[in-house]
Amino acid sequence: MAEALLDVVLKNLNSHIQKELATFWNVNKEIEKLSSILTTIKSVLEDAEQKQITNQALKVWLQKLKDTACVLDDILDECSIKSSQLGYEGKNFTPSNQVNTCSLTFLNPKKMLFHYKVGKKVKEIRERLDQIAEERQKFHLQEGIVERGTEVVESRQTSSIIAQPRVYGRDEDREKIVEFLLRHASDCDELSVYSIVGIGGVGKTTLAQLVFNDEGVSRHFDLLIWICVSKNFRGRRILHSIIESASKQSYNVLDLDPTQKQIQELLQSKRYLLVLDDVWNEDQEKWDKLKSILVFGSKGSSILVTTRLRNVASIMGTIPTHHLSSLSEDDCWSLFKQRAFGPYREENVEFVAINKEIVKKCGGLPLAAKTLGGLLRFKNEEKDWLHVKESDLEFTGG
């Protein structure tokens, strides 16, 4: 989430807004510093997003970063709007005319005041980001844990297989989605796109797996296809994965036209369910291009999307979004016990109070409960459990 937000802010800094701000007194230097700081912080965000699950201090740091980035984005929007009102719109700001533009500003009190306010705000934000960047060092975050090329980071890979013996607290969510796919979507002439939205670790992928493996769903659809998209939304890679999943054969053709024809042939007259898991793409054009190729299925074909971002759901979805909430404390406790004690080991009653305090730190997030339960599974003595509780265990997932 934080990384997606920083992408937006960096894009704004490098857009026409930057050209406008570059004409302000010394603001261009602050912009360069801001861009550098944000780029530096962004390089460790992948690691931070993962480690915040077991570190409350890191979660607070990420929230501080997101809050500051939002303020900066608001300043940039305000600058863009105000610049248009003051007559900057449409002007071509270049180094050659920057001096003349700034000189003329002295003749316009409104522009002078606007320049001063913007410069002050940008400097304050830069100082706050400086502090945030310095604070990151105490977390010992690794740089460069991001996707490169067409690869997806191993830890972000998902599949349709449900990895845990029992899923708690998602029966109602599963029934609602299955109901839509089997009844309402069947009557739709257009391709239905159903989006599951929720914060990281809340169980979006697990819910999609429950739906994907539902017996009624298996009988209803001719084709079931699962694609892990992640942050690298490449339409051609997705199409190749669909072909390989549907045909059970590898596919290496690079040209779009034969790929599109192959998709049409595979989906023609078939009612299919396609799961696009962990989608981050907010580019409407990319989605429209992909969707135009996926309309070849028969009536009732559906796409199930999981994403952290509401914008993604708004862009892709054709029906109201399914917002996935946290687990109840009882369900979170049951999941924690499943991981901490296993199917055959009896729960140690001496540590129940400690366990429940730890579960409260999960914030209702299944990923947090599973991770903490796994960490504590082989703790045999109370002092070991207390040590985990009192160290940096503050667990409120991502």
Rank of each mutant, 00 (worst) to 15 (best):
L210Q: 13
S269T: 12
D288Y: 11
R237G: 13
I242Q: 01
L304F: 00
I227W: 04
G216T: 01
Q262L: 11
V217N: 01
L290G: 05
L239A: 14
G235T: 14
S241L: 11
G300D: 01
K299L: 10
R219M: 13
V197H: 00
I303K: 03
L273C: 05
D187A: 15
K204I: 07
L210N: 09
L224V: 02
N281R: 02
V197N: 09
Q284H: 14
G200T: 01
N252H: 14
I263M: 09
Q249L: 12
V197K: 05
T307L: 03
Q284C: 12
T259Y: 04
I238R: 03
L256W: 10
V211C: 04
F212E: 05
S241C: 07
D255I: 08
S292Y: 03
L274C: 02
K261M: 10
T206G: 07
Y272R: 03
V312K: 03
T307E: 00
L294D: 06
H240M: 12
R308V: 00
F233Y: 10
G216D: 00
N213F: 07
K204G: 02
V305Y: 00
C228L: 07
L276Y: 03
V193K: 01
L266P: 06
S186E: 12
D278M: 09
L267E: 08
R236I: 15
L309R: 08
D257M: 10
A208E: 11
Q284P: 11
L207E: 09
S298T: 12
G198N: 04
E190T: 15
K286D: 10
D222E: 09
Q284S: 11
S218R: 15
I199D: 08
D277G: 00
F221A: 06
L254S: 12
T259L: 10
Q249H: 13
G317C: 00
D283Y: 06
D283W: 02
E215K: 15
